[in-house]
Design a protein around this nucleic acid. Sequence first.
DNA 1: TCACTACATCGTATATCGACGATACAAGGA
DNA 2: TCCTTGTATCGTCGATATACGATGTAGTGA
Lengths: 123, 123
Amino acid sequence: MLDRNTSTTIEAGRVASVAKALAHPARVRIIEFLLSRPGCIGGDIVDEVGLAQSTVSEHLRILKASGLVVGTIERPRICYSLDPGALVPLHMLIELIEARGPDSADAPCCHVPACGTSGDIIR
Amino acid sequence: MLDRNTSTTIEAGRVASVAKALAHPARVRIIEFLLSRPGCIGGDIVDEVGLAQSTVSEHLRILKASGLVVGTIERPRICYSLDPGALVPLHMLIELIEARGPDSADAPCCHVPACGTSGDIIR
DNA sequence: TCACTACATCGTATATCGACGATACAAGGA
DNA sequence: TCCTTGTATCGTCGATATACGATGTAGTGA
């Protein structure tokens, strides 16, 4: 894949699994809430996102599985906090895109002669 | 939600939709392939990811819908390239997490006395 | 006009996700 | 022992995602 072209090989599977953890608005809200407070108990999160406790627990399970969130047991509560280390593969990919990106919309794009100098952009 | 606590309001929906575009290994591979070449035609991408042409076309549609990828019509081909602008909301969230992150695993986390100073970490 | 190329869309089957209520579990206190 | 609290898991459902082959579409060239 990219192995021969890039010194830092990015595993598509790892990136995708972290991105999947971020791919739901409720989970993004949970992360934003954890950002706004240095550690939260589950009940606060349930109040915040406005979903059923079992649903929030499932979202937290997904976030924990991805490594983005870790829980610290403080019986009877569990304190959740963010672990930025899990973001590294995704962050690397994003920075690669942004590093190369600014020109990619303007530069000739293909091995086809004059490609990118004309033609409509589709979205 | 976070509006009162953060100067830069991040819309959970926008972040989630970009993350969803990255939440599949085949789409990550497509992006890596676009990174490794300054613009590619669809057929090359089909060869690269090893899926059926219709499946790759669907993944490209998802990437285009998220704004991550734009296509330039060069009949009969279409040249695809990356548009890093779409990553901004996601990148902002990631940088917020990493800016706050390093301490969050060690620091006392809750409003519960002594929370975070003991207790097992669960994942 | 006809065939070819490059890509998109359709129809489909299957898998996974997301939500909920109900229930289980573990620890602490009455 | 029973009740309460905080959280996890189960079962179920509807919705969405993923994959494929078949087919449609638009431009090119014979």
